[in-house]
């Protein structure tokens, strides 16, 4: 009888332990799923605010406003992010007067985290601030420099050396865009004329004259 009693008692303890563990596991799982799928996502979305980057071109310094054909001039662009850290900020310098960058434009200096890229006629470029989600073909060449990420208050500079090949007004379009692009603060300039990409630009120009 003692043996039976002991065996029965052990069985009861074992069954009870199993039930307790299953109940505890069920409660823990309910807590886990509630937190993971409902509570934390809602909490995160309600507390997280939109990233408000604010790119600006703080300086566009030309070495000359007028050059003689055959001579070159320098342009230094300084850009800053006055807002929140952007995942990426791009500075674009485009040249609507020329069909190829070849030997006309050279990068003399830059401090961006990424190496600037040359965009030739026909290359794919983003448009309307959608980046590569809305791609079009480039009708004229440009240079794009970017840093990823671009922290609040950071300055980046690029200097180019330009040697025009024809007389007239040599035009350079300038703009900077922070990505992800959420609102109008994420691009600079914020108004004015638009380029072929449907994005606002600032214009810098040099008169090229004969001797």
């Amino acid at each position: 009888m003692n043996f039976d009693y002991s065996k029965r008692s052990n069985n009861i303890i074992r069954v009870n332990t199993t039930i307790v563990l299953i109940v505890l596991a069920a409660i823990s799982l309910i807590i886990y799923y509630s937190l993971s799928i409902l509570y934390i996502p809602q909490l995160y979305l309600s507390f997280s605010s939109e990233v408000k980057s604010q790119p600006v071109i703080t300086g566009a310094k030309l070495s000359n406003s007028k050059v003689i054909l055959g001579e070159s001039f320098d342009l230094t662009i300084t850009t800053r992010n006055n807002g929140d850290t952007a995942d990426m900020q791009v500075v674009s310098l485009s040249f609507p007067n020329i069909t190829s960058i070849d030997s006309i434009v050279k990068i003399s200096d830059y401090n961006f985290t990424q190496k600037p890229v040359f965009i030739e006629v026909g290359d794919d470029v983003g448009s309307e601030y959608y980046g590569f989600d809305k791609v079009i073909k480039a009708p004229y060449p440009s240079i794009e420099a970017n840093s990823r990420p671009w922290h609040t208050g950071d300055y980046y500079q690029i200097s180019i050396d330009v040697k025009p090949t024809s007389v007239g007004r040599f035009v350079i379009f300038l703009k900077t865009i922070a990505l992800p692009h959420i609102n109008e603060l994420d691009h600079y300039p914020r108004f004015g004329i638009k380029d072929y990409q449907g994005e606002f630009i600032a214009v810098s120009s040099v008169d090229v004259v004969n001797k």
């Binding site: 199993t18 596991a25 799982l29 807590i31 937190l35 993971s36 995160y44 997280s48």
Partner: peptide, 28 residues
Amino acid sequence: KSLLSTIPFYVLNIIPIIIADIFLSKLP
């Protein structure tokens, strides 16, 4: 850096793992 605040959310995943461990090691 923008994911740092989500580490506590990720750490919660230890719960189902511990539960599975209990089921497999403590239950018949």
